[in-house]
């Protein structure tokens, strides 16, 4: 009856007791990622919501080794862990680097680029909530066009950075995007990634109730809407070749996605969409064409 089978990984390696807001998709995504990766995993986490809500002394929520250093260096730290394991000839371990969109696309991009280029056996997971949420919703280079943040009060004028593509051109053997609503897909991609030697990049879409202006219980629904409106294409690239795309048989207009979020409310004047909405629809259309959604 269910669209999805009932196989899943649930080990609660990101345990209860974290301080994420109610309905936080990043907390959810992180748990799904860790549970799929399993216990033989070390996570190197960038400063950000995830680290702050999951890593306070004396009761962090991690149940796997967790290493936090700075905002912008999780990829380099993970590279260090990976080489140390190699140097010490310890039993192989999954090394994950994690960060939000700011630490991934903006301040930490150099370290990620270096990690990719040197070919470390590290899976970098970016939890994309499309702004600097931890510090109060400032624009990042993953903030989508039109979105209101505290540093773009009139709506963001720039387009979202295509980091998965940047990873591909780095020659990263496995690049994938995923959403929290489809945990089978997400967890499968984590496992696929970890089965491949070398750098991997997983981009997880993680709605933020606080920053996006939606009720906590809408996180899953909005994540799904992003997919269904084709604003967030879900795909997998192996060795530079697009190997899978989550097809959207019934494509919804972007309004359905925009209207349920406070950060896009200014794009509707008395419920009537402004020209920006057309531009956002155009982004979706480009995605449809590009990925044959």
């Amino acid at each position: 009856m269910m669209k999805t089978a009932v196989e899943f990984d649930k080990k609660n390696l990101l345990a209860s007791g974290h301080r994420a807001c109610g309905g936080c998709a990043q907390a959810l995504a992180c748990r799904m990622v860790l549970d799929a990766a399993g216990k033989n995993t070390i996570a190197c986490v960038a400063t950000g919501c995830l680290e702050v809500f999951s890593g306070p002394y004396p009761d962090p929520s991690w149940r796997i080794p967790f290493l936090h250093s700075l905002f912008e260096n999780s990829a380099a730290v993970a590279a260090g862990v990976e080489v140390a394991y190699r140097a010490l000839k310890k039993a192989p371990v999954n090394v994950l680097a994690m960060g939000g969109d700011g630490s991934t696309a903006d301040i930490g991009f150099q370290c990620i680029s270096g990690m990719f280029e040197r070919g470390h056996n590290v899976l970098y997971v970016c939890y994309d909530n499309e702004a600097y949420m931890n510090t109060g919703v400032q624009r990042s280079s993953f903030t989508p066009f039109g979105a209101k943040t505290t540093t773009t009060p009139a709506g963001n004028r720039f387009h979202k950075k295509d980091l998965p593509q940047l990873a591909v051109v780095h020659g990263v053997p496995y690049v994938a995007t995923a959403t929290v609503d489809d945990y089978h897909d997400l967890q499968r991609k984590v496992k696929t990634a970890l089965s491949i030697h070398g750098p991997k990049y997983l981009h997880v879409y993680a709605p933020c109730p606080l920053g996006w202006g939606h009720a906590g219980d809408m996180s899953i629904a909005i994540s799904r809407l992003a997919k269904e409106t084709c604003l967030f294409p879900v795909y997998e690239i192996k060795d530079g070749k697009l190997v899978s795309v989550v097809k959207i048989p019934v494509k919804k207009p972007v309004e359905e996605y925009l209207k349920v979020q406070g950060r896009f409310r200014h794009l509707f004047k008395k419920g009537v969409p402004t020209t920006e909405v057309e531009l956002i629809q155009e982004i979706a259309n480009q995605n449809i064409e590009r990925f044959n959604l």
């Binding site: 345990a15 209860s16 007791g17 974290h18 301080r19 796997i64 967790f66």
Partner: peptide, 12 residues
């Protein structure tokens, strides 16, 4: 550096 096996979770 905290031993994670000894953590008493915070009750949210």
């Amino acid at each position: 550096a905290l031993d994670l096996r000894k953590v008493v979770p915070y009750k949210t």
